[in-house]
């Protein structure tokens, strides 16, 4: 996958997080070979069109609660169904914004509704290697956004 994809997904994530008042710093992109270990909360969204695969958000519980709190106007939150729904919607918005940015670069994609997975010692197997974009939120919380997709159009 080319830089235009990585840049667009990075921009999509940052745009959404910053609208909720979260400061973001993105790190160097890492190639993750299948299978790879993930955090305790994962949100998966399928992508179809000029790319075919999945986007995944991988975060620990403290990051999930921090983000959900920001999305709910700094309310105190715990890891419950409302928090999971907030994180799923955040991922939907980040991927949706990236898809909108990519459409302006003539890359046409559609997305599926998000699925949330929680548990310990989760390993993800994908049909292709994943590109992982690490983020540091408010200088304290880690978030990883992965794209595992094949390009169907050159």
């Amino acid at each position: 996958m080319g830089n235009k994809y990585i840049d667009s997904f990075t921009e999509g994530c940052q745009l959404v997080l910053e609208q909720f008042g979260i400061k973001t710093e993105s790190g160097s992109v890492v190639l993750r070979k299948s299978p790879f270990g993930a955090s305790a909360t994962i949100v998966v969204i399928g992508i179809v069109g000029d790319l075919h695969g999945q986007c995944m958000l991988s975060i620990e519980e403290d990051t999930a609660c921090f983000i959900a709190s920001k999305m709910m106007g700094d309310m105190d939150v715990v890891m419950d169904e409302v928090t999971k729904s907030a994180i799923a919607e955040l991922t939907n918005m980040m991927v949706g914004n990236a898809v909108t940015i990519l459409s302006q670069k003539n890359v046409m994609l559609d997305i599926t509704p998000p699925s949330v997975l929680t548990g310990n010692n989760i390993h993800i197997s994908t049909s292709s290697a994943s590109l992982s974009i690490p983020f540091l939120l408010d200088g304290k919380y880690n978030m990883e956004f992965c794209i595992s997709a094949k390009e169907l159009k050159q």
Partner: peptide, 8 residues
Amino acid sequence: VSALGKED
């Protein structure tokens, strides 16, 4: 009200 803002 959508996360997708694509022109099409």
